[in-house]
Amino acid sequence: MRGKVGAVSSSGGFTAVVADALRDANVQLSQLSEATRQKIREQGAHPSPTNPVDAAARGVPGLEADDVAYCLKTLACDQDVGATLYAETLFLNPETIVEKLIDVAATSGKPHITAWQAGVAMHGAVETLRGNNVIADLGQAVRTLSVLSKHAATREDGPLSSKPPEDQVLSTLPARPVSDELLFEVLSRYKVPVVDQRFVLTDEAGRASEGFVFPVVLKGLIENCLHNPELGLVKLKLPNSAAVESAAREMLSRNPEIHGFLLPRQISGEEFIIGINNDHGFGSAILLARGGIYAETSDNIALEAVPLSREIAERMIDKVDPKGILSGYRGRPLMAKDKLIDMLCSVSALAEANAKRIAEADLNPVIVTEDAAVAVDAVMVLR
C-alpha cells in the first residue's frame, strides 16, 4: 500500500465515525485532487466532496450501489490514495451492492477493505463478501490499514528494487517438499549463504570426510523425510573420519532406507530460524525467531511482508533479540548482525520472485557467528 486512504460510506454520519477511527489509528486520509473531486461532483451531484466521501449525496432511489462503486473506483484512481475503505451500517437492498464491492476489490489495483457492521439484517451480504476476502468490522479494517500504512512508510521512495527473476528449477518442479542439496543450490543463487557440505554415498562417508576441517555433522538422507533429527539421522561434532564412518554404519543399521549422507561443517554461534509463509489472501511474509531445537517453543517472533528493506530486517532482529545478544550483551562477542540482515533481504527476494511456487519454507537453524550468517539446514514446500 502506497499513499493514504480513500474512504466511502452511504451514511453522512458514519463518514465522521470512520474519519475519527482512522485518525485515532494514525492512518492518514488522502487529500483528494481537484480532478477526483470534479468526477464525484459530476456523477454523484455532490456539491463539495470530501474524504471520507458521502456516496448518498445524490439520493436517487435504486442508484445507491452504483454511486458507491463509482466513488470507490474514482478514489482508487487518485495518485494520493493507496487503499480504499467502504464502511457501512445499514443499506437498502444490500444484494444490489455485493457484486459491485467484489468487483471493486478485484479490479481497483489497490488494497480494498469493506467494513460492514449492521448485525443480522446484513448477514447474507456480509457472508458473501467474507467469502471473497473483502469484509471486516471497522476496528479490524482500521488496524489492517494501520499495518499496511506503517509497512509502506519505509518504502516512500518507491520500490526497493526491480523484482528478482523466478528460479527456473523451482518453476518446473512438481508440488512437493524440497530439501538437501537441490534447495541449497537454489538458496545460493539468491545469495543466501549456506554451510559448506558434501553429498556422499552410503559406503563412502568415512573416506569422503578425509580432508575436511573437523568437527563435522553427518546427516542421513531418506526420501521425503524432512525432519532428520527426530529419526536419529543427525550426528553432531564428529571429530574425525573414523567417527564419521562409525556414525554412518550405526545410522544405516537402524535406517536401511538411507540413500546417502550429507557432510556439513560444524558451526557454532547464535541460532535463528528464518521462514517463508505464503498466504493465499495476504501474500508472502518472512518470519524470524530464535532457532534450533527450541524454534517451536519461542513466542518472540517477527513477521513482515515482502519485500523487506534493510531497515525492516533490522527491526525484525531487534524484536527477536531485544537484549542485544548479537550486539555484545554483557561482554559477549559482537556477532555479524549485518550478515543476518543481508540474509533476511535475500530470503525476501527468493520469496518475492517465487511467490507462485513457494507455499512455505524454513531455514533452521541459521547460525550467526562473529563474521557470518549461514543456513545450516532448510526445507521448502512447493505449491
Rank of each mutant, 00 (worst) to 15 (best):
111 P>Q: 04
90 L>K: 12
167 D>A: 02
126 V>R: 05
104 V>L: 01
130 R>V: 15
148 L>A: 08
158 G>C: 02
156 E>A: 14
128 T>E: 10
146 S>M: 06
168 Q>E: 15
146 S>E: 12
165 P>M: 13
171 S>W: 03
160 L>R: 03
154 T>G: 14
133 N>P: 04
135 I>H: 09
164 P>S: 08
170 L>H: 03
144 T>R: 03
123 H>E: 15
154 T>P: 05
137 D>L: 04
171 S>T: 05
125 A>M: 04
88 E>L: 14
171 S>K: 01
94 P>H: 01
108 S>N: 14
166 E>Y: 02
107 T>K: 04
109 G>L: 06
150 K>C: 15
169 V>H: 01
160 L>G: 10
157 D>C: 15
128 T>S: 09
100 K>S: 13
151 H>E: 15
125 A>W: 01
126 V>T: 10
88 E>R: 08
106 A>F: 06
146 S>A: 11
94 P>F: 02
99 E>G: 09
134 V>T: 02
168 Q>V: 15
156 E>T: 10
122 M>L: 12
171 S>P: 03
108 S>P: 13
150 K>F: 15
112 H>K: 04
100 K>T: 10
94 P>Y: 01
99 E>Q: 07
165 P>N: 13
137 D>Q: 03
91 F>A: 10
110 K>E: 09
87 A>R: 00
102 I>M: 05
97 I>A: 04
92 L>E: 11
169 V>E: 06
146 S>W: 05
128 T>V: 14
130 R>I: 15
101 L>G: 01
119 G>S: 03
114 T>D: 07
95 E>C: 09
111 P>C: 07
120 V>N: 13
166 E>A: 12
85 L>C: 02
140 Q>R: 02
131 G>I: 03
153 A>R: 07
127 E>M: 12
112 H>P: 10
99 E>R: 03
125 A>T: 00
119 G>E: 07
99 E>V: 10
152 A>I: 11
118 A>P: 05
94 P>A: 04
118 A>R: 05
152 A>S: 10
118 A>M: 14
124 G>C: 15
114 T>V: 13
129 L>C: 03
122 M>A: 10
133 N>Y: 13
122 M>G: 05
101 L>N: 00
119 G>H: 01
130 R>Q: 12
128 T>Y: 06
